[in-house]
């Protein structure tokens, strides 16, 4: 029996991270990638994690994906501790991690085949639907190397969306693309997000990108990786990355970010 949610908490919490820490030992140094990080992300929320490289943003994504375990603290999804990777929380990587031995369609089907209880006709239908959604249905029989960088990331997006994950984890997915392609994808991702209402955790070091996409922008600082500040972005959607309002937010956040970096250097 599910009791009706109280009015004050209309949106349930999807992800809860409490006092999470994680460190790595490389051959030459000890890196405290995350130190006592606590974060709540609501269902359907679009959260952007911003910070200089090495601040543990990607580590945090890996923990949520279940690809890594925290040294301390807990990571929960839907109230359950995360025990491993799975099709409920899918990760989209920096470079298109598409499989070159499969066609575009084969790549999208790969994740769907790992979801139980789908007939092959249903899988095919879903794959085609999501390829249509990213505007690449007519390339479904193409080989991966025949696509441009932007198209590849669109396929990767379709592949991540197709198994219907509750959470989409994006690790600088547009980092390697040119500015024009990136702007197109900002539009696409906002459109798809507003249609499908996934919970998205988006890692980037591009403040403007974070402001353009996120409901919330969370600022990380490195060594050890910690959350420094949080910003709500109440701008209406769809947002244009070149708008003046957006620039106002990103200027402010960049100023705060620079403050940290400088105080780190000074201290």
């Amino acid at each position: 029996m599910e009791s009706p949610a109280p009015a004050t908490e209309a949106v349930p919490t999807k992800l809860v991270l409490e006092h999470v820490s994680k460190s790595f030992q490389t051959s030459s140094l000890h890196v405290q990638a995350l130190d006592d990080v606590t974060l709540r992300i609501a269902e359907g929320e679009f959260v952007c994690l911003v910070g200089p490289s090495g601040c543990g943003k990607s580590t945090l994504l890996n923990l949520i994906a279940g690809l890594d375990r925290p040294d301390g603290g807990t990571v929960q999804a839907d109230g359950q501790p995360i025990s491993g990777p799975g099709p409920h929380r899918l990760m989209m990587f920096q470079e298109a991690a598409l499989f070159p031995w499969l066609t575009v369609l084969g790549n999208v089907l790969f994740g769907l085949k790992l979801v139980n209880g789908l007939s092959s006709a249903e899988r095919r239908e879903k794959a085609e639907y999501f390829l249509e959604l990213v505007g690449l249905k007519r390339f479904m029989h193409s080989n991966v190397h025949e696509l441009s960088g932007g198209m590849r990331q669109r396929v990767a997006l379709a592949r991540s969306l197709a198994p219907n994950p509750g959470v989409l984890l994006m690790d600088e997915p547009f980092g390697a693309l040119d500015a024009l392609t990136r702007e197109q994808l900002y539009g696409d991702i906002q459109r798809i997000w507003s249609q499908h209402r996934k919970t998205i955790v988006f890692v980037t070091h591009n403040v403007r990108e974070a402001v353009c996409l996120g409901d919330r922008v969370i600022l990380f600082s490195p060594n050890p990786g910690r959350i420094r500040e949080e910003f709500s972005i109440p701008l209406p959607r769809p947002r244009d990355i070149n708008s003046v309002d957006l620039a106002r937010y990103s200027t402010e956040i960049t100023r705060v970010l620079k403050g940290y970096v400088q105080s780190e250097v000074a201290g």
Partner: peptide
């Protein structure tokens, strides 16, 4: 290694 990581993230493991 990105191939294995992507596959793992989609729930592939072990023999698969």
């Amino acid at each position: 290694p990105i191939y294995s990581r992507a596959a793992r993230s989609m729930g592939s493991s072990g023999f698969h």
